[in-house]
Every structure is written in structure tokens, then in C-alpha cells.
Amino acid sequence: MSKLELTEEQVALLNSKEGLYSLLRNKKVNLTKSLEEAAYRDELKKKQEKLIRLQNWVIENDKKVVIVFEGRDAAGKGGAIRRITEYINPRHFRIVALNIPTDDERKQWFFQRYINQLPKPGEIVFFDRSWYNRAIVEPVNGFCTNQEYEVFMSQVNDFEKMLIQSDTHLIKFYFSITKAEQAKRFKDIQNSPMKRWKMTAVDRRAQELWDEYSKYKERMFEVTNSAHAPWLIIDANQKSQARLEAVTHVLEKIPYS
């Protein structure tokens, strides 16, 4: 087996806190894998420091920020949100993951329950799934009528334009994974006593309905990838790179000082 020659920079990285963590967290040492993980953790930490400055700018200038995370089940939306929010001030952000609507909410204008969750000045709100449930999940699973779906599709661009015109920064992420990767992650979840609670009835049908999800997903992009609120589609098969891409995009799109 050929000897792995390390640069001074790589040696320093392995001797850092991130490098030592990567080396010691596994029983069997794999230098290549440890270097990759240490580099990821090091880059993520630097970007998380910038996120703190971004949040301070939001607070000090009474800005409002909405970040939408969409994607198939097990695409890694929650993990990305956790990395973004890990070190920022919890008093000035919220993570919104709404449950199924109540009877009263079903009788309201569809967007009303989401309007109630929008940020106040100086706050960032992360939607772990959003109003775009009605664009994909609801029609695929029969949770809304075709008329309700079409009304939503005709209104969503104007709704988002109103948000932006009210001085709200809006970012929309779609985490994209392959069918094989989703199946692998579902298996990991089902085999883990700590994660098994994440599986829902909707999740269990996701593989069976893959093509239906794809059909509605493509129409969502076609209709709602607007100039004022474009989607960023992230290749989420590799979790660490997907998280870095999401953090980087937030830092680039929010004009903090």
C-alpha cells in the first residue's frame, strides 16, 4: 500500500480541534476520510462565524428574513437548518415546522397560517417545509383538491412578491436527492431506535410515489422559479457539501455589512 504523504497544511489541520475530533471519532483511522471531515468542519466553523455577524446585522437593522427549505423526505433539510442555527442567538430566530392544519385553518385562506409565522423586525424564520407543501406533498397524497392546488399555484408568486415588497429577504432552497439515496436513508432511519420516530405514513409511500412527486416538483419549478424569488436547487446526496452550499448561499444573498 502506498504511503500517504501529508502537506504541512494537512498536518496542521489534523492537529487542530476539528482534525483530532475526526481522527478519534472512528475506531479505525482513515486519514483521507479524516482530512475530508476536518476540512468540512473547519470551513463550516468559519462560515458559522459569519452567520453570527449576519444575524447581528439583521437585529441591529430590524431586517426580516425568511428561508424556505423544501425537498423530498430524508433529503437533509433539518440537518442543514441545525448547522445554520447552531451558534446564532436563539432569541432572534425561529424554526417553523407546521403540523397538519386544524379544522379552522382548513377554512381559512391557505397562506394565512404561514403569514402568522412570518418574522418580526430583527428576526430570521426558517421554514422546515413551507407553503410549498401544497405544490407537491398535498396533491400527491390527496390532501387537497385539484382546484385548491391550482388556486395555490396561481397565487404563490404574488404572495412571495408581497413578502419581498414588505422588506423581507426571501431565500428558497430545494434539497435534491436520488431515489436510491432516499431508500438508503429511509433504511438507516428505520434501523435506528433514535431516529425511527421520524418515519411517517407519508414517508413510507415516498418511494412508491416517486414519479408523482417528480411530476409535481417539475411543475413547481416551472411556475415558481420567479425572478424575484428564485429556487436554489442543492445536490443533497452528499450531506456535508449540501450544508456548506446552503450556508454559503445565505451569506451571499443577505447583504449584511
Rank of each mutant, 00 (worst) to 15 (best):
residue 67 I to H: 06
residue 71 G to Q: 12
residue 79 G to M: 07
residue 59 I to A: 02
residue 53 R to S: 09
residue 61 N to L: 03
residue 39 A to H: 03
residue 53 R to V: 01
residue 72 R to V: 05
residue 87 Y to G: 07
residue 89 N to P: 05
residue 73 D to N: 15
residue 84 I to G: 00
residue 85 T to L: 06
residue 90 P to E: 03
residue 55 Q to H: 09
residue 94 R to L: 11
residue 87 Y to H: 12
residue 55 Q to F: 08
residue 62 D to K: 15
residue 76 G to I: 05
residue 40 Y to A: 02
residue 77 K to A: 11
residue 46 K to S: 05
residue 65 V to L: 13
residue 76 G to Y: 07
residue 83 R to G: 03
residue 59 I to R: 07
residue 85 T to C: 07
residue 42 D to N: 12
residue 45 K to P: 01
residue 66 V to R: 01
residue 41 R to M: 04
residue 58 V to F: 10
residue 45 K to C: 01
residue 90 P to M: 02
residue 36 E to W: 03
residue 81 I to Q: 03
residue 45 K to A: 10
residue 78 G to M: 08
residue 46 K to R: 11
residue 65 V to Y: 06
residue 67 I to W: 05
residue 38 A to D: 00
residue 66 V to W: 01
residue 92 H to V: 12
residue 47 K to I: 01
residue 49 E to R: 11
residue 36 E to V: 01
residue 61 N to I: 04
residue 55 Q to E: 08
residue 69 F to L: 14
residue 61 N to K: 11
residue 92 H to P: 08
residue 54 L to A: 07
residue 53 R to D: 09
residue 90 P to Q: 06
residue 86 E to D: 14
residue 39 A to S: 14
residue 87 Y to Q: 07
residue 89 N to R: 03
residue 60 E to Q: 15
residue 54 L to I: 02
residue 80 A to T: 15
residue 83 R to V: 10
residue 41 R to G: 02
residue 89 N to E: 04
residue 56 N to Y: 05
residue 36 E to P: 02
residue 71 G to W: 08
residue 82 R to N: 14
residue 51 L to H: 02
residue 94 R to K: 15
residue 79 G to L: 09
residue 70 E to Q: 15
residue 77 K to M: 10
residue 45 K to D: 03
residue 71 G to T: 14
residue 55 Q to T: 09
residue 37 E to A: 10
residue 56 N to E: 11
residue 91 R to T: 11
residue 47 K to V: 00
residue 83 R to F: 06
residue 62 D to S: 15
residue 76 G to P: 11
residue 93 F to L: 09
residue 76 G to Q: 09
residue 62 D to N: 15
residue 40 Y to H: 04
residue 41 R to S: 06
residue 85 T to M: 07
residue 59 I to Q: 04
residue 64 K to A: 12
residue 69 F to M: 13
residue 50 K to V: 02
residue 42 D to A: 10
residue 37 E to M: 11
residue 84 I to A: 05
residue 55 Q to W: 08
residue 52 I to R: 00
residue 75 A to E: 08
residue 74 A to F: 07
residue 73 D to S: 15
residue 63 K to A: 13
residue 59 I to P: 05
residue 62 D to C: 14
residue 57 W to T: 08
residue 54 L to N: 04
residue 70 E to I: 15
residue 63 K to W: 02
residue 43 E to S: 12
residue 77 K to P: 09
residue 63 K to M: 10
residue 50 K to C: 00
residue 83 R to D: 06
residue 36 E to L: 10
residue 42 D to M: 04
residue 41 R to T: 06
residue 69 F to R: 12
residue 72 R to P: 14
residue 77 K to N: 08
residue 86 E to G: 04
residue 52 I to P: 03
residue 82 R to L: 14
residue 37 E to H: 14
residue 87 Y to F: 10
residue 86 E to L: 10
residue 60 E to T: 00
residue 78 G to Q: 06
residue 75 A to V: 14
residue 93 F to R: 11
residue 66 V to A: 07
residue 72 R to S: 14
residue 94 R to S: 09
residue 57 W to S: 11
residue 75 A to I: 14
residue 83 R to Q: 11
residue 75 A to K: 12
residue 94 R to N: 05
residue 76 G to H: 09
residue 56 N to D: 09
residue 75 A to H: 13
residue 91 R to G: 10
